[in-house]
Design a protein around this nucleic acid. Structure first.
Lengths: 183, 183
DNA sequence: ATATATACGGAACAAAGTGTTTGTTATTGC
DNA sequence: GCAATAACAAACACTTTGTTCCGTATATAT
């Protein structure tokens, strides 16, 4: 990838993140991004077709990191080999806290629905194997509940930040959710 | 209220609902509403300042009905006097099904975040007295989970409609939610 | 029934944003 | 160094927004 492209793409991401700290997603315009990133109009459109596509690209970057199991410190590494699902959730919460600056605006803000949708897409894959329901509850409903609850948990966590550890949040989540096995 | 005002207001509501069945909230423009309702531009703005205010007004109309305990048929009435919380939830689901045509677009659609926020405002009041948490879970977290889960439940229900009764949905909801007392 | 009030419609307006195009300049990778 | 290409500026037609002004139609009160 051309160095100029990398530089521009990065400027756009940075500008976008900065804007999302000040205003909600839907009220951020392409014009805003162009001004904040200090790039030409045609340059933006040569990188992304729409604002939504920019969001998706940024989410992909972030979520690929948050949900990757490969990148772990040594301390985490051996613990992860025979870790419980609950540990994995805790681990994800750690990664989310790392990326907090880029995404808290999207979680907290009132207009981050597109973002939440992308987030849930990833969550479905993580949760799918761990849905345990009693016979009469539809499985797709249980999956929906698990995913929505976790997204809601992260949202709540990001809103009042600092006062709760990933371990605590993970514990709260599993205590409130009746459709997930912790193993 | 002037008959002309009522008529216009109703035309706007009807047009808005019709549009929401075809496209998502954020992509419906004031221009669309004006065209669909076949009214003058200045007329719209004399009724509502923004599209969001229109949504809020329509939601207030609908939710005041959905969450009212007064309006009940005789059959429901005596049952409601010493009803459990779970019965009340079932009752709300019945009302939601009545209003389904006006609101399913907002629940199902991908852009109904403003709407969901209004919905949750009402739910908080309904759920507040019935949050029962174990000592170590923050109460505001539990309330958030309960409200979000129910909103998610209704969303799921509206998506695949017809195949589940309000009683069933209510049962699913309470089985998945660990923070609400059913009494 | 008539008068008064007012809601509606239509047209025009500036302002802002969108997405595209064109031609020029600067930077990069080989 | 040279060819390729990314960035830029400017201009474009188009849509949406929210406001204003004024003539017309309708409702309400007496």
């Amino acid at each position: 990838m051309d160095r100029r492209q990398r530089k521009t793409r990065n400027a756009i991401f940075t500008a976008f993140s900065a804007l999302l700290e000040r205003k909600c997603y839907s009220s951020v315009t392409v014009q805003d991004i162009i001004d904040e990133a200090d790039i030409g109009r045609s340059t933006f459109y040569s990188h992304f077709e729409t604002k939504d596509e920019l969001l998706r690209a940024m989410c992909t970057d972030i979520f690929d990191h948050v949900f990757s199991e490969d990148i772990m410190t040594e301390a985490e590494h051996d613990f992860s080999h025979n870790s419980s699902f609950r540990d994995r959730i805790t681990h994800i919460l750690y990664h989310l806290r790392e990326k907090q600056q880029s995404i808290s605006g999207l979680f907290i803000g009132e207009c981050g629905e597109v973002f939440i949708r992308y987030f849930k897409e990833y969550l479905y894959h993580v949760f799918d194997a761990h849905i345990s329901v009693s016979s009469n509850i539809p499985r797709d409903y249980a999956a929906d509940m698990a995913v929505s609850s976790f997204a809601g948990t992260v949202r709540w966590w990001m809103r009042d930040n600092g006062s709760h550890s990933p371990e605590e949040v993970s514990a709260y989540f599993f205590e409130c959710t009746g459709v997930l096995s912790q193993s």
